[in-house]
Design a protein around this nucleic acid. Structure first.
Lengths: 375, 375
DNA sequence: CTCCTTCCCGAAAACGTTTAAGTAAATATT
DNA sequence: AATATTTACTTAAACGTTTTCGGGAAGGAG
């Protein structure tokens, strides 16, 4: 049985309240008494019981996190970002992986509330009801931050990627390499990411005076075979593109398969830029130039927003778009090929995925963050 | 403010104790009263305050998990396995990612204990003191399970992979394809995994009557360039191997680079088996036949062992070795190449990584689990 | 009619903490 | 010198449960 306040109080002949206040460094306790209490706490290896403290103070300093899938590259990175920021601020994380099951999502939410979490981060989830939060969470008024899934619930914060910006970067990069006929293999329609990336692509074309040919956009389903099929179709045309901006890295892998099958030499005959900066991008040959989807930073930002609400009790909701950078590898031709085998080592050296604390400095309400920044 | 037991009691004119016992379905409450209490609890949206319950009952039904790195493929899979089993048993998970920082590991452990976790799972971590657990955890006697990092602490459970078995599987598979000269690119010496995989490789050679040539083992450092260099060396010999069992998938990617550079046609000129079944194995060309490192199952098993201790208060420690299976892809030649682009889709279809509840049925003390099973 | 069970239920303590309110002595103010 | 304020501490209530103990009522046995 670990030491409690009572043990310290008895050992020193003081009252419980005095010890409690001394440990909290309250001004109404004399310096000498504080010293004695601190010394005794040290001697008895006292550690506060956060359960009891949470019961009394009604603040548990734990945050509930529901993520769609911890074991995915995206989910785990969001979690890593959240945890780093929470730990820095003395909070801890109760984690639930919903595994795309709405009922587990709902049950998990209830369990987190029963554990009296101070706040909630819902990452890439919340499939069952987009319109409303359960009454339990609203009436307890625990703050909520949504990550990567825009919802139309009033009063909650949102953190998402700036896909518009990222797609602009990718397309601009291809244009800068002299390409004039650039195709885009997009995600399935109906996705925010698909739309934003198409818009960024179109905007870059326009800004550099290239004509936008709707036939150069083909929709895939984010999966490898769809990228393969789309590339096959593009490359079999009379006037095939010289470059393809692919909506994600997995489809880009399919594009590489198709290009290889067509006997094309990459990146000379065809330049490719992916999206996401998945780990696989370093292992494809040629290694894939791609736009980073800043999942770690998004998690970090979500935690910052939540703690901002908790400690500064900010009221007005904000929406933040986090930007990823373009990661240069061999699939665009700008890099020398000789050291591309070392791409993974470099990827790891910079901490695997980004660990920089960029993209967010204080909560600023942004409605359409990418537009004003780009134009 | 959410409803409490007192609210229910007042609404029904009952005492607090009666309501508490009714909700716990205690036999000393009449069925009629129980019905009324349950109905009222439903009506008032009552949810128990687990913080208060934890304070009183001294059991929080939360498990502390410290993992080396959540954002790695391994770490996130362990976490997923742990969370699935914990959730099934009504437990929740406080997660800390130590990021290879011993001080964060130590601080995190202290924080978890302050939160009165019922048990601890230490996955791939515990770098600072292998010999002893801190006195706080022993004197509170919270059970501990170590995952993937064997420690010489008495009385704690251990879950690890059966690398000996996996390496045997891989080598046996190459032998079955007719290869007689099989090299092994091992991990750095000093690793348990390196030794076990070498021993499995040697054992398979012996069982099938092949001579073991020490020159055919080259040590790498788990990283891509080291696999590349090792393969270059092996392939430049007078009598190069016709197959290589590579100690992990990342080095195997380097082997593929080297083979491509030597103008070899895979898998005809050189067959390759990797280890880990990382996601990248599906994206390499040819897609990599590899042995699964069952991280998800290891996490699942760790949680099972912990809960077994908690609810059945098992005393004697056990060590469990979990086996992964051999995943057949193209790099060994047994598969038709035409559909290898769909490997990722199949990989996802079976749930990404393994989600089967295999490898463990009740805690059985195993000292050297692979030996007796294989022989 | 009394005694003893059995069945339900209530009173109260306990878990470890925080905090509002109270108190006695010391010091400052008029 | 009387009063007001400050200082440093204590008492006690509260947070929402669980659980031990006790007690009243009903019913059966003697």
């Amino acid at each position: 049985m670990p030491a409690t306040l009572k043990d310290i109080a008895q050992a020193l002949g003081l009252s419980l309240a005095t010890v409690s206040k001394a440990l909290a460094d309250s001004p109404e306790i004399s310096p000498e008494t504080k010293e004695k209490v601190w010394a005794m706490a040290q001697a008895l290896h006292y550690h506060p019981n956060l359960v009891a403290r949470g019961l009394r103070s009604r603040r548990s300093r734990t945050i509930g996190v529901i993520v769609d899938n911890v074991s995915s590259e995206f989910g785990s990175l969001v979690v890593a970002g959240i945890q780093d920021e929470l730990l820095r601020c003395g909070y801890q994380m109760l984690l639930i992986s919903a595994e795309k099951r709405p009922e587990q999502e709902k049950a998990g939410l209830a369990m987190l509330l029963e554990r009296a979490v101070d706040g909630l981060i819902l990452a890439d989830t919340w499939h069952h009801s987009v319109e409303t939060l359960p009454s339990e969470v609203t009436e307890r008024n625990v703050p909520v931050v949504f990550v990567n899934r825009r919802v139309s619930i009033v009063g909650v914060d949102f953190v998402g990627p700036d896909d518009y910006y990222g797609a602009y970067l990718a397309t601009e990069h291809l244009i800068g390499h002299g390409h004039r006929r650039i195709a885009h293999i997009a995600g399935p329609s109906g996705w925010q990411a698909t739309d934003d990336r198409i818009r960024g692509y179109q905007c870059a074309l326009k800004d550099y005076g290239l004509v936008y040919d709707p036939d150069l956009i083909i929709h895939g389903d984010w999966d490898l075979p769809s990228g393969y099929a789309a590339a096959k179709q593009l490359l079999s045309r009379d006037e095939p593109p010289t470059a393809i901006f692919v909506g994600n890295d997995v489809m880009a892998a399919g594009v590489l398969d198709a290009a290889r099958e067509c006997g094309l030499s990459l990146p000379h005959d065809l330049a490719i830029v992916g999206y996401d900066d998945r780990e696989i991008a370093c292992f494809l040959r040629p290694a894939l130039t791609t736009v980073e989807l800043p999942m770690y930073d998004m998690g970090l930002t979500a935690a910052m927003l939540l703690i901002d609400r908790l400690v500064r009790s900010r009221a007005e909701p904000v929406a933040v778009a986090v930007r990823g950078r373009l990661v240069y590898r061999a699939s665009c031709g700008s890099h020398s090929l000789q050291d591309e085998g070392y791409a993974y080592r470099r990827w790891q050296a910079r901490g695997g995925h980004t660990r920089s604390q960029k993209g967010y400095s204080g909560p600023v309400p942004i409605v359409e963050p990418s537009l004003n920044a780009l134009q």
